[in-house]
Design a protein around this nucleic acid. Structure first.
Lengths: 198, 198
DNA sequence: CGTCTATTTGAATGTACTCAAAAGCGGTGG
DNA sequence: CCACCGCTTTTGAGTACATTCAAATAGACG
């Protein structure tokens, strides 16, 4: 398989710790490149999550749909993000959220058997994964704090500041569902923000 | 050291996987029992979290104080819970929340050096910890979903159903800060719940 | 018993929501 | 190239839920 296509992934791993060429090659051998068209689903809420995947290009979102049909976007995933509900992936329980492409995207996916084999056999990967799990936990705790203590306007301003690209790239109603408000409310918030500026 | 005092902890570990007597004894040797009086702090927000600890008895809460001085209770910790901000513990960054006893409590604490030594030297502990980290991540993700998609009333009813002991044991204003509402609002919600019942 | 804290209640305010409709924008086919 | 369609965003009006400020009541503890 052409190794060139995995150059982003290689850099992503090396950010945490060094991977030997063999280790990296061994890891990429478990991956299957998959192309997703805009709006296509990578996995569906309530179905088992059979794959985890690395986002090589494009953009996706993970979102939970409640029993009223309202959607809550848990995160947006760009290049170097990993997607899939790990809980479902590991334990076979129904996935708690859907993952859907917001743009045409390319991901590299792995199924459970191969993933666990890689964890067993590739110490570099095992180490990376351990660090990753810890960081994910920290991030999700931080996100819980933010979500509970910041107003919608504060969250939006923070997003504008920390991730202006997201606001550029993603339709506003998805941003609203990320902020956990209705599109109408985000529109009004934007109005007050921009009127304050003048 | 008297091993009898660690019987809860032993059972707690064994729920995940078997510990040999040596492994368990080795682990308990890194622990220091600490008694906390009601209202006493185990660690303070913005200071480094120097210890992680297991709750052997009593009850504590972890809470974040925002810049307006409002408190948000992230979780209550009873017997078998672990407390401390792991992010701060590992990386030395300021702790993102405080941990305070709500009742007189006994905890077993470990500092970073000993904790990491234990992870290196006791495979049973390392395995337990890996499972624990994964579960914590899953729980915190689930909590994020709930916090964003359920109304305060739903959350309170759920708490009444799933953890009636918490509602019994813990003053109402702490419950309110856990639900992320003001004590006045919880009081009103309770009023409507109880009036519906009759 | 008195003091301190927790809880309840009242009234006014604020933020986001619902329902409804208009305006804006992007892509497609004639 | 433009007209049309579908989807997104904005705007309006009325409503719901939680908040703030304020005060009264209830409970806990020395």
């Amino acid at each position: 398989m052409n190794q060139q296509q995995f150059s982003n992934l290689r850099m992503h791993f090396e950010e945490t710790d060094h991977f030997s060429d063999e280790a990296f090659k061994k890891f990429t051998s478990i991956l299957t490149p998959v192309v997703l068209k805009k709006k296509e689903f990578f996995n569906m809420q309530n179905e088992q999550c059979r794959y985890l995947a690395y986002v090589n290009s494009g953009c996706l979102r993970a979102f939970y749909t409640d029993n009223k049909g309202d959607e809550f976007t848990m995160y947006f995933a760009f290049q170097n993000w990993w997607i899939g509900d790990k809980t479902s992936f590991y334990s076979g329980t129904p996935s708690r959220f859907s993952v859907q492409a917001l743009e045409d995207a390319e991901v590299f996916r792995a199924d459970k058997t191969k993933w666990e084999k890689a964890l067993d056999e590739i110490p570099e990967f095992e180490k990376w994964y351990r660090v990753k799990t810890r960081k994910s936990y920290e991030a999700s705790q931080q996100k819980l704090i933010s979500s509970q203590t910041e107003s919608a306007e504060e969250k939006y301003l923070k997003l504008l500041k920390n991730a202006p690209d997201i606001v550029q790239r993603i339709p506003q109603h998805y941003i609203a569902s990320y902020l956990n408000i209705k599109p109408q409310s985000l529109s009004r918030i934007r109005k007050t923000i921009f009127s304050k500026k003048h």
